[in-house]
Amino acid sequence: MVDFQQGFIKLSPIPPQQVMSLVGPMLVADEQIIAAFKSIRDSVVFTNKRILAINVQGITGKKIDYTSLPYSKVQAFSIETAGVLDRDCELELYYSAVGKVKFEIRGSFDIVGFNRILSQYVL
Protein backbone atom coordinates (compact mmCIF):
# COMPACT_ATOMS: atom_id res chain seq x y z
CA MET A 1 0.00 0.00 0.00
CA VAL A 2 1.10 3.54 -0.69
CA ASP A 3 2.49 5.47 2.29
CA PHE A 4 -0.05 8.28 2.33
CA GLN A 5 1.56 10.06 5.29
CA GLN A 6 4.30 11.30 2.95
CA GLY A 7 1.80 12.44 0.33
CA PHE A 8 2.21 12.16 -3.39
CA ILE A 9 4.99 14.31 -4.77
CA LYS A 10 3.74 17.06 -7.06
CA LEU A 11 0.99 15.52 -9.12
CA SER A 12 0.26 17.00 -12.53
CA PRO A 13 -3.16 16.76 -14.20
CA ILE A 14 -3.25 14.42 -17.21
CA PRO A 15 -5.98 13.35 -19.63
CA PRO A 16 -7.89 10.31 -18.26
CA GLN A 17 -7.12 8.38 -21.46
CA GLN A 18 -3.48 8.13 -20.37
CA VAL A 19 -4.36 5.87 -17.43
CA MET A 20 -7.21 3.92 -18.99
CA SER A 21 -4.95 0.97 -19.87
CA LEU A 22 -3.89 0.73 -16.19
CA VAL A 23 -7.28 1.10 -14.50
CA GLY A 24 -9.85 0.31 -17.20
CA PRO A 25 -10.06 -3.41 -16.35
CA MET A 26 -10.57 -2.55 -12.65
CA LEU A 27 -13.52 -0.21 -13.05
CA VAL A 28 -16.92 -1.52 -12.00
CA ALA A 29 -20.22 -0.95 -13.77
CA ASP A 30 -21.12 2.76 -14.04
CA GLU A 31 -17.69 3.83 -12.74
CA GLN A 32 -16.17 6.72 -14.66
CA ILE A 33 -12.90 8.58 -14.36
CA ILE A 34 -13.42 12.21 -13.33
CA ALA A 35 -9.75 13.26 -13.03
CA ALA A 36 -6.29 11.76 -13.37
CA PHE A 37 -2.88 12.89 -12.15
CA LYS A 38 0.69 11.72 -12.57
CA SER A 39 3.95 12.16 -10.71
CA ILE A 40 7.27 10.85 -12.06
CA ARG A 41 6.20 7.18 -12.10
CA ASP A 42 3.03 7.00 -10.02
CA SER A 43 -0.54 8.03 -10.82
CA VAL A 44 -3.74 8.89 -8.99
CA VAL A 45 -7.15 8.41 -10.57
CA PHE A 46 -10.35 9.90 -9.16
CA THR A 47 -13.50 8.13 -10.30
CA ASN A 48 -17.10 8.74 -9.34
CA LYS A 49 -16.79 5.94 -6.74
CA ARG A 50 -13.21 5.95 -5.38
CA ILE A 51 -9.63 7.07 -5.63
CA LEU A 52 -7.14 4.66 -7.20
CA ALA A 53 -3.51 5.25 -6.22
CA ILE A 54 -1.12 3.54 -8.62
CA ASN A 55 2.37 2.99 -7.22
CA VAL A 56 4.92 1.72 -9.76
CA GLN A 57 7.57 -0.32 -7.94
CA GLY A 58 10.99 -1.73 -8.70
CA ILE A 59 13.61 -0.79 -11.24
CA THR A 60 11.71 -2.18 -14.22
CA GLY A 61 8.32 -0.86 -13.14
CA LYS A 62 6.59 -4.14 -13.89
CA LYS A 63 5.39 -4.50 -10.30
CA ILE A 64 2.50 -2.14 -9.59
CA ASP A 65 0.57 -1.57 -6.36
CA TYR A 66 -3.06 -0.43 -6.73
CA THR A 67 -4.69 1.06 -3.65
CA SER A 68 -8.43 1.71 -3.74
CA LEU A 69 -9.83 4.38 -1.43
CA PRO A 70 -13.66 4.47 -1.51
CA TYR A 71 -15.36 7.83 -0.97
CA SER A 72 -17.83 6.15 1.38
CA LYS A 73 -15.06 5.86 4.00
CA VAL A 74 -13.96 9.52 3.92
CA GLN A 75 -14.69 11.17 7.28
CA ALA A 76 -13.48 14.67 6.42
CA PHE A 77 -11.60 16.46 3.68
CA SER A 78 -10.00 19.82 3.00
CA ILE A 79 -8.55 21.76 0.11
CA GLU A 80 -5.86 24.42 0.00
CA THR A 81 -5.73 26.74 -2.97
CA ALA A 82 -2.49 27.84 -4.63
CA GLY A 83 -0.93 31.11 -3.53
CA VAL A 84 1.52 33.61 -4.94
CA LEU A 85 4.68 31.89 -3.70
CA ASP A 86 3.26 28.42 -3.14
CA ARG A 87 1.86 27.60 -6.58
CA ASP A 88 0.63 24.11 -5.64
CA CYS A 89 -2.84 23.31 -4.38
CA GLU A 90 -3.53 20.50 -1.93
CA LEU A 91 -6.28 18.02 -1.21
CA GLU A 92 -6.41 16.15 2.10
CA LEU A 93 -8.85 13.36 2.88
CA TYR A 94 -9.19 11.67 6.26
CA TYR A 95 -9.93 7.96 6.53
CA SER A 96 -10.42 6.16 9.85
CA ALA A 97 -8.26 3.14 8.94
CA VAL A 98 -5.58 4.91 6.89
CA GLY A 99 -5.38 8.37 8.40
CA LYS A 100 -4.65 11.47 6.35
CA VAL A 101 -4.26 11.07 2.59
CA LYS A 102 -2.60 14.10 1.01
CA PHE A 103 -2.29 15.04 -2.64
CA GLU A 104 -0.24 18.03 -3.87
CA ILE A 105 -1.26 19.21 -7.33
CA ARG A 106 1.00 21.47 -9.34
CA GLY A 107 0.10 23.97 -11.99
CA SER A 108 -3.14 25.76 -12.63
CA PHE A 109 -5.75 23.30 -11.42
CA ASP A 110 -9.25 24.35 -10.37
CA ILE A 111 -9.20 22.82 -6.87
CA VAL A 112 -12.35 24.70 -5.82
CA GLY A 113 -14.33 23.31 -8.76
CA PHE A 114 -12.86 19.87 -8.09
CA ASN A 115 -13.95 20.21 -4.45
CA ARG A 116 -17.53 20.74 -5.63
CA ILE A 117 -17.36 17.56 -7.75
CA LEU A 118 -15.77 15.56 -4.91
CA SER A 119 -18.44 16.79 -2.48
CA GLN A 120 -21.09 15.09 -4.59
CA TYR A 121 -19.47 11.72 -3.90
CA VAL A 122 -18.28 12.21 -0.30
CA LEU A 123 -21.23 14.02 1.30
Rank of each mutant, 00 (worst) to 15 (best):
Y71D: 02
T81R: 12
S108C: 13
R50I: 05
S68E: 06
V56M: 04
L85D: 15
Y66C: 06
Q5M: 13
S72K: 08
I117A: 08
D110C: 06
L27F: 01
I59V: 12
D3H: 14
F8R: 11
S96M: 11
I40T: 11
V122T: 10
L93Y: 10
V23I: 10
S21Y: 02
R41M: 06
I54L: 06
F8E: 07
A53W: 01
N48Q: 05
F77Q: 14
I105A: 01
M26I: 03
P13R: 15
V112M: 14
I9S: 12
K73N: 08
S72C: 05
V56H: 07
I59S: 12
V2M: 07
V122K: 10
I40K: 13
A36I: 04
K62S: 12
K10L: 05
P70A: 00
K73T: 08
V84Q: 14
D30S: 02
V112D: 12
A97E: 13
R87S: 09
L123A: 05
I34W: 00
V112T: 15
V44Q: 04
Y94A: 14
P13V: 10
E104D: 03
Q17I: 06
L52V: 10
S96T: 13
I51A: 00
S21I: 02
A35D: 11
G58N: 14
Q32E: 13
A35W: 06
C89S: 15
L52N: 02
F37L: 07
S119R: 03
Q18Y: 13
I105W: 00
F114Y: 08
K73H: 08
F37H: 07
V98F: 06
Q57F: 10
L123W: 06
